[in-house]
Design a protein around this nucleic acid. Structure first.
Length: 154
DNA sequence: CCCTGATTCGC
DNA sequence: GCGAATCAGG
């Protein structure tokens, strides 16, 4: 396949901004592009596209960060090493009704089927849940509630 | 308890 | 500059 050298290419950045402006969460953007959530946030911050960047201030140091203190960090790390042990993989959700942005409607799952450098920017287009922007399968992935997206299930 | 956003540090 | 780690809030 195509070996991706540079992490953030122009297409990747455009995709990042597109999804960011589309209202997608950093985690969703990350999983869509194929990078980590922090990578997306880091790049966004570097690009100056942070969502809380209205004023160039108003948030210097609300409570002062006591250097590298390790208060409740341990439990988070334990959770990570116990639960997470594998990278996030794309979901094998069957999207036969893929559609373009123009064809995207309320009756279409708006899951960005986009590849870094792909010419065919499409969406899932499946029937979404009531009140949900994604279809049941993608909703499960987008909002990993109840069970994590660990195992990929069709 | 889990997730999301933003900042900071290390490479 | 990129990514992971860390902190803080919802």
């Amino acid at each position: 396949m195509f070996a991706i050298g540079p992490t953030w290419t122009t297409e990747r950045i455009e995709l990042l901004k597109s999804h960011f402006e589309a209202g997608l969460s950093c985690r969703e953007i990350a999983v869509h592009i194929g990078v980590s959530r922090n990578a997306v946030i880091g790049k966004l911050s570097r690009l100056g596209l942070t969502r809380g960047e209205f004023n160039a201030e108003a948030r210097p140091a609300k409570k002062e960060r006591a250097s590298r203190s390790i208060p409740r960090l341990q439990y988070q790390m334990l959770r990570t090493v116990y639960e997470d042990g594998e990278p996030v993989l794309a979901a094998p959700v069957i999207s036969e009704q893929r559609c373009s942005l123009l064809e995207l409607n309320k009756q279409r799952c708006r899951w960005p089927i986009s590849t870094p450098g792909a010419e065919d920017f499409c969406f899932c287009g499946n029937t979404p849940l009531e009140g949900a922007p994604y279809c049941p399968g993608h909703t499960r992935l987008a909002y990993r509630s109840g069970s994590r997206q660990r195992v990929a299930r069709g």
